[in-house]
Amino acid sequence: MIAIIKYNAGNVQSVQYALQRIGVESVVTDDAHMIRNASKVIFPGVGHANAAMQYLKEREMDQLILSLTQPVLGICLGMQLLCNFSEEGDTSCLGVFDTDVKQFVSDHLKIPQIGWNNIYGYQSVLFDGLPEEAFVYTVHSYFAALGKDTVAITDYILPYSAALQKNNFYAVQFHPEKSGVVGETILKNFISIL
């Protein structure tokens, strides 16, 4: 069973709909036992980093997530919370990925970045079978800087980490659940990890 972590960070339901569309059953839960025993865990989320971290800490879900040994996929805010630190509310995050989350700054480009952008420089099984520079749907005002865990890159204002990977932790800044056939391929690749 795939567990989707339920917490105070927006509409985690849409990930479940996406899995349903590719024929994969999942459960949206904040139950520690269910999450620990899931074959895969998805950690989605949109919203504010500080509020989300506070919520996770109060329920000791931060320690739970760090202790997971099965494949974990962070999405959007979920990915940012797996980094060291976020400039959003000067938040100390989970520290799985050795990179910081910074705010986009531009005097001519819109922030948040909303829409379809390319990913390139694939270095993860998540991207198996995708064309070069595949399009994904993304919505964010903060980005994870490039680092040694970067496994895909997107350019907006500057090149940033579109995806990160370390040990059993995988993460994407964009929304695979809303990225059409490309997103479905990425979700299927994650589900297929042994």
Partner: peptide, 8 residues
Amino acid sequence: IAAHINIP
């Protein structure tokens, strides 16, 4: 719609 559509 959500059951069928994979874009926002």
